[in-house]
Amino acid sequence: MNTRTRDFVLLGVVVCVAAVSLFLGLRGRSPKIDLGVYEALGAITAEETAKSLHDKTKLLLIARDTGSDKNPSLEAQINAFQQALKKHRNVNIIVERFVASPMTMMATGGGIPPDQFSLILEKHKDISAIVVFCPLPPLSDSDIAFLRNRKARIVVASSFRPDYSGLIKQGVIEMVIAPKQEPPPSDASQPRTLRELFDREFVILRSADVGIGN
């Protein structure tokens, strides 16, 4: 083997070793998600919902089933919600997970498909409160009348939509918990509790906040 051939072989070995090292390094990395915000959302949503509930209440939680590849943020939100409600022994929680393809979720704006929402409501007729961890589907006049007759408190933990104001005024939705539109000030102190983290990231909207009676 002459000197030039040997140099090419050594260069090839170095390149291969570097490529393998880079591959193994990247393979071992996984994106780290800060779940604290979602845990705060789940826990405080549970606390705020429980404030208006009476003894021996059945609460229905509706959230998307993300399949075998669980969505860590949604699962953290649901787990925190369930853990927080364990302190309220009068509340019996029922969880319904709906299945929707990515295309369906795009078509519904991330909300539960109307047919699945109706089926879930028909399945649980003795519910005192409904918490939805996604946008509501568009509601027809008959849907609104049906929900008002059910007299179940509905809490939506999702981004705020303009039609929610009307639904709150009509008594269909009791409370919307939505992300704040503006980021916290750059000099804001770091939150030390779930409540402080929640207050920094989210806002609670009730009838008084949408001008009911005006």
Rank of each mutant, 00 (worst) to 15 (best):
residue 100 A to V: 12
residue 138 P to N: 03
residue 73 S to H: 02
residue 91 V to H: 04
residue 71 N to H: 11
residue 149 N to P: 03
residue 80 A to L: 05
residue 91 V to N: 07
residue 83 Q to K: 14
residue 112 I to E: 01
residue 104 T to S: 11
residue 102 P to F: 05
residue 103 M to I: 09
residue 128 S to K: 13
residue 150 R to A: 06
residue 153 R to E: 11
residue 144 I to V: 15
residue 146 F to H: 09
residue 114 P to I: 05
residue 82 Q to S: 11
residue 140 S to E: 03
residue 101 S to T: 15
residue 99 V to H: 11
residue 123 K to A: 14
residue 80 A to P: 03
residue 154 I to E: 00
residue 108 T to A: 07
residue 147 L to F: 05
residue 150 R to W: 02
residue 113 P to S: 00
residue 98 F to I: 04
residue 111 G to A: 08
residue 129 A to F: 01
residue 80 A to S: 15
residue 133 F to N: 09
residue 97 R to G: 03
residue 90 N to Q: 13
residue 116 Q to E: 14
residue 95 V to S: 13
residue 86 K to W: 08
residue 147 L to V: 05
residue 91 V to T: 12
residue 123 K to T: 15
residue 117 F to Q: 02
residue 79 N to Y: 09
residue 118 S to R: 15
residue 107 A to F: 08
residue 104 T to W: 00
residue 101 S to R: 04
residue 118 S to L: 08
residue 153 R to S: 13
residue 152 A to C: 04
residue 97 R to M: 06
residue 134 C to S: 15
residue 124 H to Y: 15
residue 107 A to V: 12
residue 123 K to H: 09
residue 136 L to R: 05
residue 126 D to A: 13
residue 88 H to L: 02
residue 86 K to H: 10
residue 153 R to N: 11
residue 122 E to Q: 14
residue 152 A to Q: 01
residue 76 A to P: 04
residue 141 D to A: 13
residue 134 C to D: 15
residue 115 D to Y: 07
residue 114 P to T: 07
residue 150 R to E: 00
residue 87 K to H: 11
residue 87 K to I: 06
residue 108 T to I: 09
residue 109 G to I: 08
residue 154 I to M: 10
residue 140 S to K: 02
residue 111 G to S: 05
residue 121 L to M: 14
residue 134 C to F: 01
residue 95 V to L: 15
residue 133 F to C: 03
residue 147 L to K: 00
residue 125 K to Y: 10
residue 139 L to N: 00
residue 77 Q to N: 06
residue 138 P to I: 05
residue 135 P to C: 03
residue 76 A to N: 02
residue 112 I to F: 08
residue 103 M to T: 10
